[in-house]
């Protein structure tokens, strides 16, 4: 199981888009880590998200790998993850923040 935290702004992602993003992120996890994603989907309430001190349109996706990654592999995976979220959430490149963490310990 791969922990996956997804933070999105209220009202900016439709139910259909959410369902597709969940599926595609899970498929990414299976490809990258040979394990399904455990999704923690968090919606930032209206008037509660700010980026650069302005109302935020950003999405934040954070996954924890089940193995230590080389940096070149991490970059490749992060690019793929960002692409999934840019397309699925209809965000620009500047609006997607993605993290892939190594396992703890």
């Amino acid at each position: 199981m791969i922990e996956c935290l997804c933070m999105v702004q209220a009202g900016q992602i439709s139910a259909d888009a959410e369902a597709a993003l969940r599926d595609e992120t899970n498929a990414f996890s299976e490809r990258a880590f040979s394990a399904p994603a455990v999704m923690n989907w968090i919606v930032v309430p209206e008037r509660s998200g700010y980026t650069a001190a302005r109302p935020s349109t950003s999405v934040i996706v954070s996954m924890q790998s089940n193995r230590k990654l080389s940096q070149s592999e991490r970059v490749t995976l992060l690019k793929e993850l960002c692409d999934i979220w840019m397309k699925g959430a209809n965000r620009s490149m500047e609006e997607v923040v993605a993290t892939i963490r190594d396992p703890e310990g």
Partner: peptide, 13 residues
């Protein structure tokens, strides 16, 4: 730079 800074508010999360 400020463009990097995200601040999100929640209640009783």
């Amino acid at each position: 730079p400020p463009t990097f800074v995200h601040v999100f508010f929640f209640e009783e999360a």
